[in-house]
Each structure stands twice: as C-alpha cells, then as structure tokens.
Computed example of a mutant assay.
Amino acid sequence: MTTTEPDSQEAHFVGATPFFASGHDQRLSYGLFVPKDHTPGAAPLPLVVVQHGTGRSAERYRNEWADFATRHGCVILAPLFPAGIGKRRELHSFKFLEYDGIRFDEELLHIVEEVGQEFNTETETFFLHGFSGGGQFAHRFFYAHPDRLAGVSIGAPGRITQLDDSLPWWLGTGGFREKFGIELDLAALRRVPVQLVVGSADVETWEINNAGGPNWMDGVEKTGRTRIERIETLRDSFERSGLSVRFDVVPGVAHQGSLVIPVVQDFFAGLLASRLK
C-alpha cells in the first residue's frame, strides 16, 4: 500500500513555511518563504533576512516579501524573537544584541546556519533588512558581523548607535570590544553596501522621546527629535567613517514598514543582479 504522507509533509517546506523553533534556542523561531521550484539538488539560493520590529510582525513581513523571493530567486527568512523573554512585558531586548545572557546577533547566525542545512541557501553571506526596532537590530548586527552581510538595509531606527568610540554603548561604539568580544572592523564595514531608508512623514515622536523608559539612555535626545533626524545623524556618522550610503526618503510615508518595502526591494534587487554578472 502506498501513502502520500511524505509528499504532504514536504509540502510545508516550500512556499510560506510554518514557524520553526530554533534548534539552538527554542524560545526563538523563524519562518521562511522558499520558492516552490527550488530543489535540494539545485544551486543554493541567496538568503534575505527580514527582521521584525517591536510588534513582532514576522509573518506579515515574510508574506510581503514572497513575490520578491519568486521573482529574484532567493529565500526569505523572518526570525521571530518573542517579547517577554526573561521578564514579562519586556519589548526591546533584541534591538541591542544582548539581553539577560542572550546574544541575539549570534542566535540569528545559528538560525541562518540551520536554514542553510535544511533549505539549500547561501549562508556565508546574506542580506539583512529591518525597520524601526528591526532597523535598530540591523545596524548593530552590521557592526558586529559585517563579514556575514552581502548588503544591509536599515529602516527608521528610533534609537541609533553612531560609529563613535567616544560615546558609550549603545549611543556609540565605546566599549564595543569589551561588551561583545568583537573588534570593530571599519574596513569590513566599508565593503558592505548600505541603505538607510525612512518615510518623509515619519515625524511622530511619542515612542522615541520617552525619557526614563526601559529603552532610554541620556544623550538620545542629541541625535534628533524625529526618526528622520536620527537616521540623518546615523548617515552622517557612517559617512564620517568612510562608509558609502544609499539614503532613501520615501515620499508621503509615515512610520509604516510595509510602505518602504518597494524601495528596499529595489536596493536588494540591484545587489542580487550584480552577483550574477
């Protein structure tokens, strides 16, 4: 008697997949979009990581990138770092790379390695985009692991870390090596294509000017009043350090990560196309 059980099982490992627990830390998980014509025997596909923000909208972002994955022949990875790990109602831990003994940058690398083993993707380098809280994570991950990135897109971070050793972490990179055991590598940072992106109407300040809040550090106010001003400060910091930056202000868009996706996809599409030349 034959059975279709193996086929029905494998059907969940292409297209929009379930969310899988990370093999390294099962408090964390990830979902994927894998083009349906991709097979284990084919050449590995490039990997695009789309990091959620405070709202943990990982599934929505994954789905919004599905057409891009099919058109450009890549795999979309959407990590999910739940709120409330270690402390109830805690929202911001992953944005700063380390919290309560968890190194979220290293946990993402464990997930990337696992995805490479299970889904036939390129993992030596990958593309990374994050918006808002995801943009915070993305630029700090970039500082820690530039050698792993084929390109990084940083969207509207409410709190920035400047490339400035005279400022303490996380306002700047002072004490970076002592905290993370990683030497900041400016030469490697300069080799990574960088996009900074924000909406022209991203001017609400209620969430980012919360003095005394759990994600506040005195000195944040000096980086700008709005997310637009803060990402301009980050751009200036990058350029002073010799980084080349594509700076996109999306007309008419407020703090809406979904509405900057076309501009981010244009950036990544160009990078993917250049890999084929």
Rank of each mutant, 00 (worst) to 15 (best):
residue 131 F to R: 00
residue 159 R to A: 14
residue 168 P to G: 08
residue 122 E to I: 06
residue 181 G to H: 10
residue 169 W to A: 13
residue 135 G to V: 14
residue 113 E to Y: 04
residue 125 T to K: 13
residue 181 G to V: 05
residue 137 F to G: 05
residue 157 P to I: 06
residue 176 F to K: 11
residue 147 D to G: 13
residue 134 G to E: 09
residue 117 Q to K: 05
residue 179 K to N: 11
residue 136 Q to T: 14
residue 123 T to M: 03
residue 166 S to M: 13
residue 185 D to W: 07
residue 125 T to S: 10
residue 125 T to C: 03
residue 120 N to G: 01
residue 147 D to P: 06
residue 140 R to I: 13
residue 164 D to W: 10
residue 186 L to I: 12
residue 165 D to F: 10
residue 130 G to P: 08
residue 190 R to Q: 11
residue 166 S to I: 11
residue 184 L to Q: 07
residue 150 A to G: 15
residue 167 L to T: 12
residue 177 R to K: 14
residue 168 P to Y: 15
residue 182 I to N: 06
residue 106 E to T: 05
residue 126 F to V: 02
residue 143 Y to L: 13
residue 109 L to A: 00
residue 119 F to V: 00
residue 180 F to M: 08
residue 167 L to N: 07
residue 120 N to Q: 02
residue 119 F to W: 01
residue 172 G to A: 14
residue 146 P to C: 08
residue 118 E to I: 08
residue 152 V to G: 03
residue 174 G to V: 09
residue 147 D to Y: 09
residue 147 D to H: 14
residue 111 I to A: 00
residue 133 G to E: 12
residue 140 R to A: 07
residue 189 L to P: 02
residue 177 R to W: 10
residue 183 E to C: 05
residue 149 L to I: 05
residue 137 F to E: 07
residue 116 G to L: 03
residue 133 G to S: 09
residue 130 G to S: 03
residue 157 P to M: 08
residue 128 L to I: 02
residue 133 G to A: 13
residue 186 L to C: 01
residue 164 D to N: 15
residue 122 E to W: 05
residue 148 R to G: 01
residue 167 L to D: 11
residue 142 F to D: 05
residue 141 F to L: 10
residue 140 R to W: 09
residue 183 E to G: 03
residue 120 N to A: 02
residue 168 P to W: 15
residue 142 F to Y: 15
residue 142 F to R: 03
residue 126 F to E: 05
residue 181 G to P: 03
residue 168 P to R: 15
residue 183 E to D: 07
residue 164 D to C: 10
residue 155 G to I: 12
residue 162 Q to L: 15
residue 185 D to E: 09
residue 117 Q to W: 02
residue 145 H to N: 14
residue 117 Q to V: 00
residue 108 L to N: 06
residue 132 S to G: 09
residue 182 I to M: 07
residue 168 P to N: 14
residue 139 H to N: 04
residue 154 I to Q: 02
residue 127 F to N: 01
residue 154 I to M: 03
residue 187 A to T: 07
residue 159 R to F: 13
residue 134 G to F: 06
residue 173 T to M: 14
residue 167 L to E: 11
residue 109 L to K: 00
residue 130 G to N: 01
residue 124 E to M: 01
residue 145 H to S: 12
residue 162 Q to A: 15
residue 155 G to R: 06
residue 157 P to H: 05
residue 176 F to L: 10
residue 186 L to K: 03
residue 144 A to C: 13
residue 163 L to E: 09
residue 150 A to L: 10
residue 161 T to M: 12
residue 175 G to N: 12
residue 149 L to Y: 09
residue 182 I to H: 10
residue 124 E to F: 01
residue 186 L to R: 07
residue 179 K to E: 13
residue 173 T to P: 09
residue 141 F to W: 04
residue 179 K to V: 09
residue 186 L to D: 08
residue 124 E to Y: 04
residue 139 H to V: 08
residue 173 T to V: 12
residue 109 L to D: 00
residue 188 A to G: 08
residue 185 D to A: 00
residue 156 A to Y: 15
residue 117 Q to F: 00
residue 121 T to S: 01
residue 165 D to G: 15
residue 127 F to S: 06
residue 115 V to F: 03
residue 108 L to V: 11
residue 161 T to N: 04
